[in-house]
Design a protein around this nucleic acid. Structure first.
Lengths: 224, 224
DNA sequence: GCAAAAGTGTTTGCCTTACACCCATGA
DNA sequence: TCATGGGTGTAAGGCAAACACTTTTGC
């Protein structure tokens, strides 16, 4: 008789402007790995799909709802959880972290953003999952315009540029990058300027999601 | 109490030279979908990993062992199986079909190759899975040299060329394609010629897997 | 007027694409 | 010698990469 539990876990990335890429972790308040940091997630209920499960768990444990979420990989090794055989369907999510105040709930004693360059020890095989998620994100932002989910609705071009630099971990030529992105005509120029900080104020843009979706269906490929 | 079963299913592609791309299906000999064609697969045992499960099921049901297998996607909708909630971790496999005689075993009354252009009705949501596998294969052969798994160890250049044409569904310029592939220095020229059929005999090549793996680790990217 | 960040064009070279003829073999 | 598939080079254009100065604002 099969005795395997099915869980979902989410690697949710958040980007703080001009800072590093972060991921969302919760502090466990039950054994095993009591007080360790772990990915938000939990067992799937009998009457919900995997997508419903991950959205529910994420919201319950952290208060966050992602603007982008996709299935990443399913981890099914034998010894993932000391209690039971548990396979975990992992998801990759993106969100602008300033849109939410983190709230920890009953399932977790705390929820917090951690820089990917400074992660605590993680429970279970969650470091493996995070590594795979990062790899996927690095690959994917180069051929799908998903990075906008990490920014506010209105953003300056330099935000996009430093976002790409953070994720790819290398410099991007400002002029070439702008030329490339602009050539797709997927940004809507707003009338707003950002005047914070010093220097010349930056024009603010919005990503035209509808236009992208219609172009995509016609076989258009985004590429950085 | 969670009551969800975990299954694995494989979409195994095979290529018959100068013909179309095929997938491996089994004929079900139990309800539901008795006598329908379906993907090889079945429930995961408590003490085996997902990879072990898919290899075992595939071998039991068809006699085939793939030279390439990777996880594709996990399907977790509520109504996939009329008996129970079953989530299925799908795998994508590649094999040279001439390496095996298909044998049907106790779990299946028949196993057979079907052209992807002429599939029978499939059980469960297996058509969805096949569609996703095809999409992945089309994308992936363009940036990873996995197509060689569909050919014999020694193959003519024209085999590779028509393989790519079959999978991508479009013409490929013979000269440019050869130039590109050759530029990677990943083929070993054998001393053998293929004399079957008419016309000038073709030189036979082998793919240099070891060299590819070492290049890959150094950050090399294959691309067609 | 100076510090700080935003905004902007041009040139160069490489890589992709398009394209057609000769070669080796068997019948 | 003809039919069949195998094997090969070159030219043109488009695209990516490299590169530095001007503009706008706050102080």
């Amino acid at each position: 008789m099969q005795n395997i539990k099915v869980a979902v876990d989410a690697v949710v990335f958040g980007y703080f402007e001009n800072k590093e890429l972060h991921i969302l972790l919760i502090k466990r308040n039950i054994e095993p790995f009591l007080d360790s940091w772990a990915l938000p997630g939990g067992l799937v209920k009998n009457e919900e799909t995997l997508e419903e499960a991950i959205s529910r768990e994420l919201h319950e444990e952290t208060g966050v709802k992602t603007t982008f979420i996709e299935q990443l990989y399913t981890f099914g090794e034998l010894d993932r959880d000391p209690r039971n055989r548990v396979i975990s369907v992992a998801y990759l999510g993106l969100v602008n972290p300033k849109s939410y105040d983190l709230k920890a709930s009953t399932d977790a004693s705390d929820a917090q953003w951690f820089s990917i360059n400074n992660l605590p020890n993680l429970a279970f095989d969650h470091l493996t999952i995070v590594t795979k998620a990062l790899e996927r994100l690095r690959t994917k932002i180069q051929y799908q315009p998903i990075g906008f989910n990490l920014l506010k609705t209105e953003f300056a071009f330099s935000d996009l540029e430093s976002l790409y630099q953070s994720i790819l971990g290398r410099d991007v030529d400002r002029r070439n990058f702008r030329k490339k992105i602009m050539s797709y005509n997927l940004l809507i120029e707003t009338k707003n300027l950002r005047k914070e900080g010093s220097g010349r104020p930056a024009k603010l843009f919005q990503f035209n999601q509808e236009k992208y979706q219609s172009l995509e269906q016609q076989g258009f490929y985004f590429e950085v």
